[in-house]
């Protein structure tokens, strides 16, 4: 299953490394990354494949959310379908 991870917050050193290592530890494969800094806000969007994920989706979402809170970031993982449904006919 494909999902979108979004990371939004103040830019600090090591955000990408940190999120990628959490995903790797849980068996999630990163397919694509785009990242920008808009004003002082860091915005990263990753397309990932959760087919090999070792924990269930809700648990992975909680791990990312908790880690985000510790680093002052808003980290979400959502199934790709929701964005497809909203923006593509």
């Amino acid at each position: 299953m494909k999902a979108i991870v979004t990371v939004i917050g103040r830019d600090t050193v090591g955000i990408i490394a940190n999120v990628c290592s959490i995903l790797a530890q849980n068996g999630v494969n990163v397919l694509d990354i785009s990242q920008t800094v808009m004003r002082e806000y860091f915005t990263m969007i990753m397309l990932v494949d959760t087919a090999g994920c070792k924990v269930d989706f809700a648990a992975l979402a909680d791990i990312l959310k908790k880690d985000g809170a510790e680093h002052g970031l808003d980290i979400r993982i959502q199934r790709e379908d929701i964005f497809e449904a909203m923006h593509r006919i």
């Binding site: 979004t6 920008t36 969007i45 808003d74 790709e80 964005f83 923006h87």
Partner: peptide, 16 residues
């Protein structure tokens, strides 16, 4: 693929 702006727009709708 869905663009960054579209993804952020959706997230903004939900969170804000």
């Amino acid at each position: 693929m869905i663009t960054t702006n579209e993804i952020l727009e959706t997230i903004d709708m939900i969170s804000q």
